[in-house]
């Protein structure tokens, strides 16, 4: 059986500076896979390349059995790959409801869209209460909920989350991580990028540690969580 997402020897550069220097990994359907690593390791670059916002220098990306090379960004979500970007990137002057509608931009099933919007409101009741509010006025945690909800609105086969816990209070972070765990247990396939290695590894099936453009260590979430070098470098132990 082939994986849902296969990345082979992917290289991405900004001008002359290579930010991703040949990485390979796979994501199986139903799995949660995490990329961890310090700031500047190339995690965001990797996700932005997968969703077509950046053009790779070399390498092969296969999603659901089809190559993604050369597919423009706006056609990638159509294939079932949703991306909740770093920094949330909501449409600040549009309301919560409008942001969610945009997440379903390519869908035509109005009834299904409405049902899914209510599912997001069930997941995050605060969003339902404030549906008419401009998203730019929400708190960081609420914005993150909306960014995740918006990505779910396309009914993706693979949900990519870039640093969902960034800048959140510990309580809010816990809430977001719980939600990711819940989505995963409902069968959503997830590719999670995090600097919070502890939280990410404890919910992931597979983890990959990135350092300056390369994957330096891979293993099950459990194994990496208990790996001595990972504990030293990323979990703040010595």
């Amino acid at each position: 059986m082939t994986a849902l997402l296969e990345v082979e020897d992917l290289r991405v550069a900004y001008g002359k500076i290579e930010a991703v220097k040949g990485i390979s990994f796979t994501v199986e359907a139903g799995q949660a896979v995490t990329l961890i690593g310090t700031n500047g390791a190339g995690k965001t670059t990797t996700l932005r390349t997968l969703s077509g916002l950046l053009k790779p220098l070399a390498g092969k990306i296969t999603f659901d059995g089809e190559p993604l090379g050369g597919v423009p960004a706006h056609k990638i979500v159509e294939r079932g790959l949703a991306h909740s970007p770093e920094g949330r990137r909501l449409f600040p002057r549009l309301t919560i409801a409008e942001n969610l509608q945009l997440g379903a931009f390519l869908r035509k099933d109005t009834a299904g869209i409405d049902a899914d919007i209510h599912r997001v409101y069930d997941l995050f009741p605060i969003l339902g209460e404030r549906r008419k509010q401009a998203s730019g006025t929400l708190s960081g945690g609420e914005q993150q909920m909306l960014a995740m909800g918006r990505a779910l609105m396309s009914r993706p086969k693979l949900l990519m989350l870039d640093e969902p816990s960034m800048g959140l209070s510990p309580i809010m972070m816990q809430k977001i991580m719980e939600t990711i765990r819940e989505l995963r247990s409902q069968g959503t396939t997830i590719l999670l990028v995090e600097q919070n290695a502890q939280a990410a590894l404890s919910l992931a099936d597979q983890g990959h540690v990135m350092e300056i453009g390369r994957i330096v260590l891979s293993g099950s979430g459990y194994r990496l969580l208990h790996d001595e070098s990972v504990r030293k470098a990323y979990l703040g132990e010595d």
């Binding site: 916002l53 970007p85 990137r89 449409f91 600040p92 396309s154």
Partner: peptide, 18 residues
């Protein structure tokens, strides 16, 4: 709506399929 989204954040608009 797609136009408003593009004006506010073009990259993210593309992620929506616009």
């Amino acid at each position: 709506r797609a136009m408003q989204a593009t004006a506010q954040d073009p990259d993210t608009a593309r992620l929506m399929g616009i």
